Simulated scan of single mutants.
Amino acid sequence: MKARSPITITISLGICTVFGAYCLTKPQTANAEPAPMFKPILRDIQTQLPRGWLMRLPSSVNISDIQLYPQVITTIPGEFAVWLNSQLNCTSRSCQFGIITVAQNSTYDNNLRSQPIFTLKELERVNEIRRRGYENWTEADKRDLIRSEMAVLERTPITLKQGIEGLFVVQNSGGASTPPSLSVIWKQDGLNYRVSLGGGFDRDRNIVSQRDKSALINLAISMANESPIQNVR
Rank of each mutant, 00 (worst) to 15 (best):
K2R: 15
A3S: 12
R4H: 10
T8S: 08
I9L: 10
T10W: 00
S12I: 03
L13D: 05
L13R: 14
G14I: 13
G14L: 04
I15V: 13
G20Y: 02
C23M: 15
L24N: 10
T25C: 13
Q28K: 03
T29H: 01
N31P: 00
E33P: 00
P34H: 02
P34T: 09
P36T: 08
M37G: 01
F38V: 05
I41D: 08
L42M: 12
I45Q: 13
Q46E: 15
L49K: 10
L49T: 06
P50R: 05
P58W: 02
S59A: 09
S60I: 10
V61R: 06
I63K: 10
I63Y: 13
S64C: 02
D65F: 11
I66F: 06
I66E: 14
Q67N: 11
L68V: 14
Q71S: 03
Q71W: 04
I76A: 04
P77E: 13
P77K: 14
G78P: 03
G78K: 04
E79W: 07
E79D: 14
N85S: 02
Q87N: 09
T91E: 04
S94W: 00
S94A: 12
Q96C: 00
Q104W: 00
Q104D: 10
S106M: 03
Y108I: 08
N110P: 05
L112F: 08
S114Y: 07
P116M: 11
I117D: 02
F118G: 05
T119S: 14
L123Y: 13
V126H: 04
N127K: 06
N127F: 05
E128G: 12
E128F: 09
R132V: 06
E135Y: 10
W137D: 04
T138L: 05
E139N: 11
D141N: 09
K142M: 14
L145C: 03
R147H: 12
R147A: 15
R147C: 05
S148Y: 01
S148M: 02
E149Y: 08
E149W: 06
L153T: 06
R155A: 03
T156L: 12
P157A: 11
I158W: 04
I158S: 12
L160P: 04
Q162T: 14
Q162F: 00
G166I: 05
L167T: 03
L167G: 03
F168P: 06
V169D: 01
V170R: 10
Q171W: 04
S173W: 07
G174I: 11
A176N: 11
S177W: 09
P179L: 05
S183F: 02
S183R: 08
V184E: 08
V184K: 05
V184H: 03
I185N: 07
W186L: 03
K187F: 06
Q188V: 07
Q188Y: 01
G190C: 10
N192M: 04
R194F: 00
S196I: 04
S196R: 09
L197E: 12
G198W: 14
G199H: 07
F201W: 15
F201L: 01
D202L: 06
D202M: 08
N206M: 06
N206Y: 02
V208H: 02
Q210S: 13
Q210T: 15
K213N: 01
L216Q: 07
L216C: 11
I217Y: 01
I217T: 06
I217S: 04
N225Q: 05
E226L: 02
E226F: 00
S227D: 12
S227F: 05
P228D: 07
P228T: 11
Q230I: 12
Q230D: 06
